[in-house]
Design a protein around this nucleic acid. Structure first.
Lengths: 296, 296
DNA sequence: TGAATAGTGTCTTTAAGACAGTATTTG
DNA sequence: CAAATACTGTCTTAAAGACACTATTCA
């Protein structure tokens, strides 16, 4: 699990930049770089290539983590996965799941591993395009004071998953839950106990990314089970955008866009009423023209 | 200047993960994390909070850099800023500008500083919305083998700038230039001497971001001088998209979108022909409906 | 005068918004 | 039966595509 404290005063700045054990060597980097004309970093390449090869203490003390914005639609509401922090800082607060990137592991691999560890969820692969969750990089957060303990740069990822049984992280169901994003993001949200660090901001960015991306891509199907009806897909849009859509125009739009939906031949009555055709996500990933989000 | 080598065999993987001076402590992190149920990182918080507070050698040896995709439109072509590498690896190759993030500096601040250092360009601020370049975070690249020397995570940023005099980084004009992105991205591009590390991929992602973003935002004005004509703005779209647009329909679209363009009252004949009205970018940032990019 | 650019207007086509009406299930 | 959902179709309207025409400059 990563970090970030918007308003917490930074202990790292003084410790690392002033009197830490490796402060001198760590500070040499920026200082040297400043005077270089261009390509300033590799001007120092010889130094760390030969004098101190691969010695971590020669580098500024950065930690790299991944944070996960895991979204799903449950009971007609867009929900995010949050875990309760067991240790300080922000002990007892809810936070986004995440963790450190391993030295020999890529960023997306780290995100997929954390997702598996905390939810048991697997990521869509080329071999399984219709099962598992959608994962993409969201943005990177690296304010110097976002974690009071040290400098942490977190590469946030966005995960879109179908509705699942409530995850039980390692069997501990008390410390992980789905929460409606409206609650988490409300000004005095979650009974005025906001998410730890800068996770409210990260969550907001992830939600906005999801909201805008389903406009011009077929990504909304990532919230659906492998086979779904047009009505179920419409309720996904309604939940993510927080609007009500005309069922008839929506039906015309999605069934009229080539490659968006592929009928499986089956039908279902799980939503009640007349049996509805079942579809799978088609190969098209870009919607052109896009699905228009209604004005506020 | 940061790093990344797509195909270079990784020396880091063996050195860091196997026999590096801090391999043991570095590897402790992922190993401990694996067994934790949830919030696994802070399960170790006590360890580094008390036993080895702020000691960089206790962390995996990550370096964090910023890379810059600086785009402009010159002579009717989308161009990117590239610098020549003076040191190995990839000595003599062209690369994206960039550099290390300082320990007490935010990611965007680091990008803005590098931009200033390498181009003299300043970033648009709240006080100067009509001058300077547009800067935004693009994506983060952290494949374990992207730099053969060590683990480098690079937060790439996208910069859109008006046409400028050729930058002379610290007076050395031989090592910095504008190059058409079509040349840099061509399969056997730049006379089969591609950009260093994974910079071709980063550049491609930045170009695609710029191409898609001017569809639904007023960001194309970032390529224009503070005052510009409708024709000049149209030529920006044509250069970025590599298409020819109908001048009349374009004129109707941009002048008919409220808040996109604000007439300054002046006119110019710098493009020849009949005098054209001068505009400034309006307050609107989102274009709805978007400017449609013609099909291929 | 001719060539280039700027700007207006008009017709057609596409597709979204609104909404009437039918079909098929469960309770 | 009513109520719920699924689906088809029609009319209107917004806006893009195509293109005719006029305006104003410079060489």
């Amino acid at each position: 699990m990563p970090a970030a404290a918007g308003s917490t005063p930074s202990r790292c700045a003084s410790a690392c930049g002033g009197s830490g054990p490796n402060a001198a060597s760590a500070l040499r980097w920026p200082a040297v770089e400043e005077g270089a004309a261009h390509d300033p970093v590799y001007r120092q390449a010889d130094d760390y290539d030969h004098a101190m090869p691969y010695d971590p203490s020669a580098f500024p003390p950065f930690a790299v983590t991944v944070d996960l914005v895991v979204l799903t639609v449950r009971r007609h509401a867009l929900c995010a996965l949050v875990v309760r922090r067991g240790e300080p800082p922000h002990q007892g607060r809810w936070a986004l799941p995440g963790g450190f990137v391993r030295v020999d592991e890529g960023l997306e691999a780290a995100a997929a591993r954390e997702l598996d560890e905390e939810t048991g969820l697997h990521v869509q692969g080329p071999d399984s395009p219709h099962a598992g969750a959608h994962l993409e990089q969201l943005a990177t957060y690296g304010a110097p004071d976002r974690d009071p303990r040290m400098r942490v740069v977190s590469v946030a990822h966005l995960v879109l998953a179908p509705d699942l049984p409530t995850p039980t992280a390692g069997g501990d169901a008390h410390s992980v839950r789905w929460a409606p994003v409206d609650t988490l993001l409300a000004p005095g949200g979650e009974r005025s106990d906001p998410l730890a660090f800068d996770h409210t901001r990260i969550l907001a960015d992830g939600v906005e990314r999801a909201r805008s991306k389903i406009e011009y891509s077929s990504l909304a199907t990532a919230f659906c089970p492998p086979e779904f009806t047009v009505g179920e897909l419409r309720r996904v849009y309604e939940a993510v955008w927080g609007v009500v859509l005309d069922p008839r125009n929506f039906h015309r739009k999605v069934t009229g866009t080539p490659g968006f939906l592929v009928p499986t031949g089956g039908t279902t009555t799980r939503q009640g009423g007349r049996p509805a055709q079942l579809f799978r996500a088609g190969g098209a990933t870009l919607l052109n023209p896009p699905m228009l989000r209604p004005e506020i």
